[in-house]
Amino acid sequence: MSTLDLMHSLEQLPFAQAISESTWLFPFFETVHVLALTLVVGSVAMMDLRLLGIGSRDRTITELTRSVLPWTWAAFGIAAICGLLLFSSKAATYYVNIPFRIKIVCLLFAGVNMLVFHFVTARNVAAWDSGRTPSAARVAGVVSLSLWVVIVATGRWIGFTT
């Protein structure tokens, strides 16, 4: 069974068919997906701008992380669930769509960038928590901001290419 066959099978699942056949389920999940995405992008950008020394300079990295990251994860969970539901309704179409593929690759890179920052760069965060961030942290901020701009752009592009 090829991956494309698997995508066609996914489209046959009851919930995927329900979304595909309904007039309002797709726009509903799309709206929730966009709303959750705005919170993910906005909160990630707050962290990234702090790492770059542009925003929230009066707050320490750890304090900002503690107050922002729970919202990022909650919103990401909602965006991911709605995204999967939307994907299931036209799985084969999205699977072969280039902007969709770029979006998923960028999401994976954003995840890796975050893990590297969290487990490698931020291990000695106490040394620069309230001051100027090291270049590795600023690079993580630029990479993250760039990837999320591409994620939003390719996400929007999917609607013009499917």
């Binding site: 919170l39 992008v41 939003v152």
Partner: peptide, 15 residues
């Protein structure tokens, strides 16, 4: 895309 990025800023900050 630019419009959505600006919405992300407004929605996050006001939230």
């Amino acid at each position: 895309t630019i419009h959505i990025l600006a919405i992300a800023a407004v929605v996050t900050l006001l939230s």
